[in-house]
Design a protein around this nucleic acid. Structure first.
Lengths: 224, 224
DNA sequence: CAGTGGTCTAGACCACCGG
DNA sequence: CGGTGGTCTAGACCACTGC
């Protein structure tokens, strides 16, 4: 399925593709669904399938990698002195949001990040590491570098997938205190799950950012 | 499909549901795909289907966006009846955050988006088009298709870059009314700037999402 | 009207997971 | 090993679009 089609031109119909590749209509439709999800084609019943103009897509091809890069980059950017908050099962409010199998104990670290020049905090971050990383966790230097990169180096764990959930919530008492806000003030909450290549979560991080001082921004370049 | 299941419990298997509702496996799978896309269930080959605790948090809707294509897709997916809010310079709160040269007049449209299956609104969107697109803007059909795609077609403008800023803010009176919230409630604000290939912004959109009903989520796979 | 994509049936084989 | 979900076939009927 490597044919090149120009922008705005019509795309072959389902029946055409079925004959051309000698597969069933189901298979063709599954493939077209993916193209549609990526914004590469648009379909309309009765009309047909058309190739989306370049303007309609955002460099969808090399995007996944750059996105992961951005996320990890962001995680590495923090220069925070963490403190250990102990070890145990995952807090229910975190476990509920992920909805995965999160059995076992997790070691929790919590840190407040501040802007170098200013006093006010930019973020409160909590990081949870699964017990199978305990060996690496014990050697952590809480004041040097980022926890993730240390874990990555000393345990050899690799990232297979990252999920990220961004939500606006009201600050609770703890968050309000650390971020110098009032309870109930809007806060950006970013929950990240780091999966290894087998699909098992090995790290979870939750960051809270003050709404008035922080914006999560992404830049997407469109190729050709 | 109105059965109630608790969080974390196992969900009926596909074959069970097929017999129970006397439909084919295809139909069941299509239905389950929707539940999965909303983050309500998680499925694993060999294991089964489990209910996601996502339902526990007030029915917050997961908006899964796995790549940039989907982000743009989602931006123009809206089936919203927009209304024109007039023409003039950009509001200061919008202009300030972009930090670009935004001289000239902009035509503003505003619409409320609802999830197809649900009644409550999940977004208020404001779109601003630069005056150099005025010819295309005047031919806009506010109830048919999406504004962006219409502009794209009639003006021939191309996207060179998209930036996206995500922030948590407190709902003002207007937003609170449209989203069925109280003033001051946390709201997710997504500001997108669309640049042409020369680096000039030609469209800006601002979306407001209710914090309790909407989570911006991205899933990113790392390739080999 | 003929052709499109959307939905659905009734099968089939497979990779994976649990006991 | 049996059962799960993932993938696929070869049909079918429908709503919608364009001519």
């Amino acid at each position: 399925m490597a044919g090149r089609f120009s922008n705005g031109t019509t795309f072959p119909t389902e029946t055409t593709l079925c004959q051309q590749y000698d597969v069933s209509r189901f298979t063709i439709r599954e493939a077209l669904k993916r193209l549609q999800a990526e914004g590469l084609i648009a379909r309309k019943r009765g009309s047909g399938t058309v190739v989306q103009p370049a303007a309609a897509r955002g460099g969808a091809l090399h995007q996944p990698l750059s996105n992961v890069g951005e996320i990890l980059q962001y995680a590495r950017d923090s220069k925070v002195a963490y403190e250990s908050k102990g070890r145990g099962p995952l807090p229910t409010e975190v476990a509920e949001q992920t909805g995965e199998d999160l059995a076992g104990d997790w070691t929790c670290f919590r840190g407040v990040r501040r802007h170098p020049d200013r006093r006010r905090a930019i973020a409160v971050t909590e990081a949870y590491f699964h017990e199978r990383l305990d060996d690496a966790v014990e050697t952590l230097d809480l004041s040097a570098g980022t926890l993730f990169s240390q874990i990555e180096r000393s345990s050899g764990v690799r990232v297979g997938k990252v999920t990220q959930d961004i939500q606006a919530i009201a600050a609770d008492a703890d968050i309000a205190r650390d971020l110098n806000l009032d309870e109930g003030d809007p806060v950006l909450r970013i929950l990240r799950c780091y999966y290894d290549p087998t699909g098992t979560i090995f790290e979870i991080s939750v960051s809270f950012h003050p709404g008035d001082r922080f914006a999560y921004s992404m830049h997407i370049d469109v190729e050709g």
